[in-house]
């Protein structure tokens, strides 16, 4: 058993060191899809989080609870929901998003929106009310105040973004249902790992797992560096 693992790890390292074309291609595609999804979701969620934080309105608490409940929606459910929308029988069939990277990006955006909005709100609430009043007293309007608070909470929000990216790149429900795991087109880390494992091709899976870990490590180092500068 131990020998088997060592052997597989050796081969995995060999694949990485020799820049195996399939490995590179899957890595680049996975990064492209999940980074795009994270960027788009951030651009949507952070302002929405700011608005939810700033304004007092009826049902605010309920809305936040609802968003927090959505954190734990299984990725397959999100994938299925989107699939039913964009499939040929669905209302959005004409967008031709099924089995495309763009469709996967949209699915991952939907998947991580709740986490990003919820964590943004939490991060903003964590900034003291006095900072908010300071901004207002210095003449900031609603928009400028929200921006100021977001800046104050930037590291917490960045943490949320990284968490969301982690969820996006490691999810398999959307990737398989919307992407369809098409070789050379929509195949990503997670779908490859599950496919290759069931084929008994453990080396490629382990190699991909290593790359995923390496990406997580790099991102965390970046975050630590930024936080250290604060």
């Amino acid at each position: 058993m131990a020998n088997e693992i060592i052997g597989a790890v050796e081969q995995a390292i060999y694949l990485i060191v020799t820049l195996n074309p399939e490995l590179i291609e899957i890595t680049i595609r996975s990064l492209y899809i999940s980074l795009s999804a994270t960027l788009i979701a951030s651009l949507i969620s952070i302002p929405i989080g700011g608005v939810i934080y700033y304004y007092e309105f009826h049902g605010k608490r309920t809305l936040i609870n609802l968003i927090q409940t959505l954190y734990s929606v299984p990725t397959v459910i999100v994938g299925l929901f989107l699939f039913l929308l964009i499939s040929q029988r669905g209302p959005l069939a004409n967008l031709n998003l099924l089995f495309t990277p763009e469709g996967m990006i949209i699915g991952q955006v939907l998947l991580i929106l709740p986490i990003l909005i919820g964590f943004t709100v939490t991060a903003l609430i964590g900034v003291s009310n006095q900072i908010k009043e300071l901004a207002i007293a210095l003449g900031a309007n609603a928009y400028q105040t929200i921006i100021t608070i977001i800046k104050e909470a930037r590291y917490a929000i960045m943490g949320a973004v990284i968490l969301a990216f982690g969820r996006a790149i490691s999810e398999v429900g959307v990737a398989i249902l919307i992407g369809g795991n098409i070789r050379g087109f929509t195949r990503v880390f997670t779908t490859t790992i599950s496919l290759e494992t069931s084929k008994g091709n453990i080396e490629l899976s382990i190699a991909l797992g290593f790359i995923l870990l390496a990406i997580a490590l790099i991102i965390n180092l970046m975050l630590n560096y930024l936080q250290g500068r604060e």
């Binding site: 089995f99 249902l177 795991n181 098409i182 087109f185």
Partner: peptide
């Protein structure tokens, strides 16, 4: 050609 693979049901 794009081969889509999933579980039997899907």
């Amino acid at each position: 050609v794009q081969v889509v693979s999933g579980g039997t049901g899907i």
